[in-house]
């Protein structure tokens, strides 16, 4: 949970107040450039109803992120209906996941799946706090940016 001071800073940065609901989870991200990028989201009913960015996700960019070992690397754990030689089996197949889950549910499963299953192996792709001994080059950075999360969600929604 972010402190009140942080909330105020965020509010100032975003130029409007009241965006953060009392029960919401607030995340403050520091970009590699030293610039402060802020994103806040509210978890409701095991989902994140609001998109993290104003720009709608792009499914094609999302597909590239899912395959890219340096970004999503989702294939290390999941079978995904894309062209690839190897798929992991530690996670469930993502074939037809867009028929099972809606955008809001998919978003939380990427942002912080431990909210749903505290024991899960699935990494939180948009979380920077509560982690232990993150290598210095990754410290304070989420695995994917807010826009990348939206792109991946858009791609997953095409899997029907």
């Amino acid at each position: 949970m972010a402190s009140t001071r942080r909330k105020r800073l965020l509010t100032t940065l975003r130029g409007h107040a009241g965006a953060v609901a009392a029960l919401g989870i607030l995340v403050l991200l520091t970009a590699g450039s030293g610039r402060v990028a802020a994103a806040d989201y509210v978890v409701r009913d095991y989902a994140i109803p609001e998109p993290l960015t104003a720009t709608p996700g792009d499914p094609q960019r999302g597909a590239a992120i899912v395959v890219d070992r340096a970004r999503g690397n989702c294939l290390s754990c999941h079978a995904v209906p894309v062209d690839a030689d190897f798929f992991g089996t530690t996670g469930p197949t993502l074939a037809a996941v867009g028929a099972r889950l809606n955008a809001a549910q998919l978003r939380l499963r990427l942002v912080d799946p431990k909210v749903i299953n505290p024991m899960t192996m699935m990494p939180a792709y948009f979380k920077t706090e509560g982690l232990y001994r993150v290598a210095p080059e990754y410290a304070g950075k989420p695995i994917l940016s807010a826009q990348e999360i939206e792109d991946v969600v858009a791609f997953l929604l095409t899997l029907k």
Partner: peptide
């Protein structure tokens, strides 16, 4: 780590499974 995994996730919960 950033992926937030312990040895048990790979070597106890998933031995026999594929990581890619």
């Amino acid at each position: 780590g950033q992926l937030d995994l312990a040895c048990i996730h790979c070597h106890e919960m998933n031995s026999g499974n594929m990581l890619r």
